[in-house]
Nucleic acid binder design. Structure first.
Lengths: 235, 235
DNA sequence: GTCCATTTGTACGTATGTATC
DNA sequence: TGATACATACGTACAAATGGA
């Protein structure tokens, strides 16, 4: 069985109320004791839920005062754990496949250290152009070691979330990762797809994702046109 | 009194052991029960310490297996809560003041929403060029509302950490913040200080820091030459 | 400035569920 | 299957910070 924990339920309820504006910016949440009796769980359980909201920036806590609701995360939050689809919202995001998923070997100079197992396995490689409100903003290169992923190359990724597909078809969930961020200029391809000039500044994010499968990582390289959208994160 | 909590002590001990390599990458930490009896606290207390290490990327936890030590955070981690001095290390970092601290009014178009109180107060403004291993890598503009900061403008910032000064002289501690990241090109100033051309891509980070003083924030704008150093973060 | 009720922080103990090996 | 380890959840108590009387 896979029962949802109590603290998760409380977290979901509170997060929804914050997103919906039931609790709005600057408001105090009900106290931990109130929440505890409202939802019929102990304060320890409430505190787990509140800590999750704290970590994700929905609230700030003040000793002796309470939990203060923060303004909703805005901007394009791909600095956090969610993928682009989740950050931008499905309705505003369109995806076009530029290079269909194919089996390749890893490049010589890869941004992250690869294990021998990964190098031997080779990878599934594809490129996608992603449009926010019909403007090209992201160019994604995705690289997934081809380990235990049957019929992956035949999946249609048009307008779909990679994270969703991994979770539903292969029960792979992203747990976290690391990223390296730098500034570069647009190469020929990017000039064409973003419709920009040769010296246009591009934000480059190299990411390595960790999953619930131990020793299974995947990689992505995202190029962003940040003239209209910046990357946003809290810390 | 300001007694250090037990979970904090355990956290410090474990973090030091990880940094020192007593526990090295890939190792399993002792189990929660072992740590519990070793340090004479309950498992709940141990879990608070482990959660802190988890949030900061020192360990990953695996249900039924244990807590696995991760490789030490590397790269220039200014995506995290620490300042540049802390991220780069004092010995490798030299700071040159370009514009000495002075009182100004806030600019019209400020990246973050300001309160009326902040606008009325005006700000302390200064610019610093920061060299990593004698190469100019960061250009910092720092903007601090001039509220309750006596004799701030006369402080010498050469080769010093802003965070340290705030903490020691004014007991202001940074609790967190938000940041907006984008790519841009080098303006005249930056071309000169970084010794780069007109179209050189520059990483631009706008940050707002939250402190232990409620309603007191400060701001910084960091430009980075990412040709040799990238920004690094975990999530 | 002091007192007091409220609220979060810390810490104890115990029990059971679930994933890993 | 069993032993081990982390996840969840219960209950209790006191400390420390906040804010208003």
């Amino acid at each position: 069985m896979n029962k949802t924990p109590q603290h998760r339920k409380v977290y979901e309820i509170l997060r929804k109320r914050i997103s919906d504006g039931v609790y709005s910016e600057g408001d105090l949440l009900p106290s931990e004791n109130e929440l505890s009796s409202t939802y019929g769980v102990t304060r320890a359980t409430i505190r787990i839920a509140l800590n999750a909201l704290l970590n994700e920036g929905y609230i700030k806590k003040h000793h002796g005062k309470g939990s203060i609701v923060q303004k909703n995360p805005q901007g394009v939050g791909i600095l956090s754990i969610a993928g682009i689809t989740s950050a931008v919202g499905k309705d505003n995001l369109k995806t076009k496949i530029i290079v269909k998923p194919e089996i390749r070997s890893f490049e010589e100079a890869f941004t992250f250290q690869l294990s021998q197992k990964e190098i031997d396995a080779g990878c599934i490689y594809f490129e996608r152009l992603r449009m926010v409100n019909d403007e090209p903003v992201f160019y994604d290169i995705t690289i997934i070691p081809s380990i235990n992923l049957p019929s992956f190359t035949s999946i249609d990724f048009e307008n779909k979330s990679l994270f969703d597909i991994l979770r539903r078809r292969y029960r792979i969930q992203v747990r976290g990762g690391e990223q390296k961020i730098s500034a570069t200029t647009a190469d020929k391809n990017i000039q064409k797809y973003f419709n920009v000039g040769r010296n246009f500044p591009i934000l480059l994010v190299n990411r390595r994702f960790e999953t619930n499968r131990i020793d299974f990582y995947f990689y992505s390289q995202v190029r962003c046109n940040t003239s209209d959208y910046f990357l946003y994160g809290t810390f």
